[in-house]
Design a protein around this nucleic acid. Structure first.
Lengths: 138, 138
DNA sequence: GAGTTGACTTGGACTTAGTCCAATGTAGGA
DNA sequence: TCCTACATTGGACTAAGTCCAAGTCAACTC
């Protein structure tokens, strides 16, 4: 965690209590939280923190490349603190829970030039969908 | 187009002017419209159609598997009438435009059992991102 | 063709997720 | 310690979508 804070300080971030709290929340258990969940956990540590600040801070972290935005469905965006290891996502279609996964293969190489339509393709995102053990069981 | 209408009638759909218009809009040029764009085009053909009906109808078409929902970003969902040929998407990071693409390879096979965490994986969605020729040029 | 009825449509209120902004506060350099 | 540019606040606002009670009408029956 202090890694993250150090990197941020190094990038000229002014270190406020609010930003520290948001960084701590993300750096805790590695789950994929929505902005509102981040806010809820931040409030537990710093009751007066506002929603706007959480949104601002998350946006900045995304811009800095420290956190990834994941929008696997129409519901709220989720934030993935695991920005430094490339990975993809496995999403439960029922409950929306997310796991990071590391498939073999390179989907970027699987897109022939004829299928690129003049686009400059820079990134690929693979989302596997299915049912998590809990939802499949019930 | 009458294909689509036929299929829907065969499934017990009551055929109303509104549903016909929505089906026609989707079946026209093959682009990926947002619900509001569908509504706008539907209004051009049938001025009194309501937003709620467009949403209802789109939802039903998705449930029936006639249309795919694509949510490539946090913005509005888009609807893809090309539900009968499996394909993936290439999205412009700047303007949000979408192309259907057909990569080689099978990403489902690329997810080893050890990376499935007990999930029943049924589907995979690949989204390529980049800049379209228009946005890259400017 | 008329009657019936349950499925469909309507529009407006509501919700959820997120953005914006003017006023206020404060981290960190001088 | 002071200063100020950067950060935070909260409340209003927006966009996308859902919900619902009341009204309408497609299609079946006769």
């Amino acid at each position: 965690m202090s890694d993250l804070l150090e990197r941020l300080r190094g990038r000229g971030w002014r270190m406020t209590a609010q930003r520290r709290v948001v960084a701590e929340v993300l750096d805790g258990e590695h789950v994929h939280l929505t902005a509102d969940e981040v806010h809820a956990r931040a409030v537990a540590k710093l009751p007066e923190i506002s929603r706007a600040t959480v949104y601002n801070t998350l946006g900045e972290l995304v811009t800095l490349g420290e956190v990834l935005e994941v929008s696997t469905d129409k519901r709220a965006k989720r934030y993935d603190p695991n920005a430094h290891r490339p990975h993809h996502h496995l999403v439960c279609a029922r409950c929306g829970s997310i796991r990071d996964v590391h498939p073999t293969g390179n989907p970027l190489a699987d897109l022939p030039d004829t299928e690129r339509f003049g686009f400059t393709v820079s990134d690929v995102e693979v989302t596997y969908r299915g049912l998590c053990p809990d939802c499949a069981g019930s």
